[in-house]
Design a protein around this nucleic acid. Sequence first.
DNA 1: TTGAAAGTTCAATTTATTTTGAACAAAAAA
DNA 2: TTTTTTGTTCAAAATAAATTGAACTTTCAA
Lengths: 166, 166
Amino acid sequence: MHANEESHTDHQSVEQRLISFFKDGAKIVGLPASVGEIFGLLFASPKPLTMADLVSRLNISKGSASQGLKMLRTLGAVRDVEYGNDRKGYFEADIELKKLVGGFIREQVRPHISSGTRKLGELEQELDTITDSELRAFYENRIKIIKRWSGKAKLVLPLLQKFFGE
Amino acid sequence: MHANEESHTDHQSVEQRLISFFKDGAKIVGLPASVGEIFGLLFASPKPLTMADLVSRLNISKGSASQGLKMLRTLGAVRDVEYGNDRKGYFEADIELKKLVGGFIREQVRPHISSGTRKLGELEQELDTITDSELRAFYENRIKIIKRWSGKAKLVLPLLQKFFGE
DNA sequence: TTGAAAGTTCAATTTATTTTGAACAAAAAA
DNA sequence: TTTTTTGTTCAAAATAAATTGAACTTTCAA
């Protein structure tokens, strides 16, 4: 039997709205809609849910549920919980903003910044090949500008973490 | 004749790398690749460029160039400049981080936050329809959590602006 | 005015991303 | 061991997003 068996008349609409709310939110931050829906349903549920619950209540495939949960766990937005005593796995939304923001920065922001920094380094090497000194001066200045930006970006991340922590 | 007629041997590679750098950057913040390429080429150019320059040097269509420039102007990342005395329009990248961040927040972040706030309000209305008082209490708490998050989000935007300003 | 150059718009196409579902693997009960 | 339940993987299909290009508008010089 299902883990949750409520009347399904009362909260239906609130639940649907929360799902839709997080679905939109996911799209905004560049995550697949299904990931937002999964988080939304878990967030809207007073009890932990199983993967089968997600599949049936969101009308998504087992594959999507599995992949979506994987991503959410990596982000630290969902956690496994002990519940019932069957062999199924149960999940719960993590509501600590600190963890959500932290996971997002760690998984989605930092890797991009790293690869950008690397690319910028490569680009800088390339400068030596430029003979025209006026042009080289121009590019050197451009690179300086990007470095200033990237310095600020790296500085702001810990501040954001701090701001959203607690 | 073209607005820029350099040797095209020297800086080719640096230019291409800058284009690619901003192409990646655009994708990261959820903008189309072509928009990043346009900004990249303008950023890499010592002189203002025309739409025709973008089309020929990036191998994109006139349509993409037009739409991309439109978006970049809306974001405040590119500005029209007086140059030459032909009837073409000339463009230049804006390198003030303050403007870039400000434009992004104004155009891409705020609208989403607004629509989220509206949706949340609608959701709150819906609460009254719930008779089960335990369930309603649960949802009320969930909404409170979202409101706390959204309050922080709204608070952080001006701080970001300030941080990146100047 | 007329014609040519410059720029915009948007339906159709192309490309990229997400989702599915069937085959597979893991784990535990029968 | 065999069967059943649960979960994962990934190629194929579906969906969404970006790009094109041709028709259209605007602008200005002749």
